[in-house]
C-alpha cells in the first residue's frame, strides 16, 4: 500500500496550495510595493520549480541532464534579457 500512495505528490500539492495562499496575502493585506513584489517573486519561482520537479517529473528519467541543462539555460537567458532590458531602459538611460 505504501508504494501506491503518492505521498510526494500529495505533499507537493499541499505545499503548492500554501504557496498560493501566501501569494494571495499580497492582495488581501496592506503590504508595501517592495514587500509585495518580493513575496510574489519568491512564491512564483518556488511554485514553478515545484511544478517542474514534482508534477512534471523533471528529474525522474535518464534525460535528467538534458532537461536540467535546458532549464538552467532558460533561466540564464531570462535573467540576461531582464537585466539587459533594465540596463537599456532604466539604469543606463540618460
Amino acid at each position: 500500500m505504501k508504494e501506491l500512495f503518492p505521498a510526494k505528490q500529495v505533499m507537493g500539492f499541499v505545499f503548492s496550495l500554501i504557496l498560493t495562499i501566501v501569494a494571495l496575502l499580497v492582495y488581501y493585506t496592506d503590504m508595501s510595493f517592495t514587500a509585495g513584489m518580493t513575496v510574489l517573486l519568491i512564491t512564483a519561482f518556488i511554485q514553478a520549480g515545484l511544478q517542474l520537479i514534482v508534477f512534471m517529473h523533471a528529474g525522474e528519467t535518464k534525460d535528467k541532464g538534458a532537461i536540467y541543462t535546458n532549464i538552467y539555460y532558460g533561466v540564464f537567458m531570462a535573467l540576461i534579457t531582464i537585466l539587459g532590458t533594465l540596463l537599456c531602459m532604466i539604469w543606463g538611460y540618460v
Partner: peptide, 21 residues
C-alpha cells in the same frame, strides 16, 4: 546571439556605458 540585441538601437538614448557593453 542573446547578448547583443541593443546594437539595433544604439541611437535610442541609452548612455555610453550601455552602448559600450
Amino acid at each position: 546571439s542573446f547578448l547583443v540585441w541593443a546594437h539595433h538601437f544604439f541611437t535610442m538614448g541609452q548612455g555610453a556605458l550601455t552602448n559600450s557593453i
